[in-house]
Amino acid sequence: MTMTYLKSAVTAVALATAILTTGAAMAEGGTPTPPKIDWSFSGPFGVYDRGATQRGFQVYKEVCSACHSMNLLHYRQLEGIGYSKDEIKAIAATVEVTDGPNDEGDMFTRPGKPADRFVAPFANSKAAAASNNGKAPPDLTLMVKARKGGADYVHGILTGYKDTPPAGVQIPDGGNYNEFFPGHVIAMAPPLSDDAVEYSDGTKATLDQEARDVATFLAWAAEPEMEARKTMGIKVLLFLLVLTGMLYAVKRQVWKDQH
């Protein structure tokens, strides 16, 4: 027991040191920019492709959620990506939620409800770290907003693994080579591959497709308000353009006797 702890602690320290030192060394021009992708949600008129977002949710549920929490999401919010209330009830009911204490003072488990938060894979960050070489997998809710490059970065990481690192690059135990990760040594093993999931809508589950879908889902999770924001923004700006044009005319009229 103690030996295992000791071993994982040593691995963690070694890995952390490796990541830190390579990270510092590679920070200068070492990491290429992930390819820019023309997302459905890019641009002032962009909206989340519902199909891609739902497929991305499936990828998260079946793959990512084994290690990564999404603590800021509630099942009820899935309405935002096109699920009906009944579908959401069914989705929520598939998880076990710890609730309580009840009148006897005991915690109990019950099926999830739409009002519940996404159930995290680990009880707390210590448990998450203990199961993952000493470093807890980050929460994914805000991942797209929390990294330079946003969805491009997420897609880049998921598709940027190389089985054989370039010559001269040492990959420590428990590390993986990733082209787009700062420092190139990432603790996460390649999570996706061709046919890692089976899409119910018949889309072919290539690695690239899965990465795009899950990046779209994470983009939605980070900014669920985006569509409402852009719709309102277009109305507000159109209104302001007309108003400002009229104000300019009034200003000209008022100043006429001064010119």
Partner: peptide
């Protein structure tokens, strides 16, 4: 009125960021 017109131009600039590049 000159300030109001300026305010309109400024609001377009300001709210473009708020709504599209927050």
């Amino acid at each position: 009125f000159k300030d109001l017109f300026g305010l309109g131009v400024f609001m377009i600039f300001f709210l473009s960021f708020v709504f599209f590049w927050p």
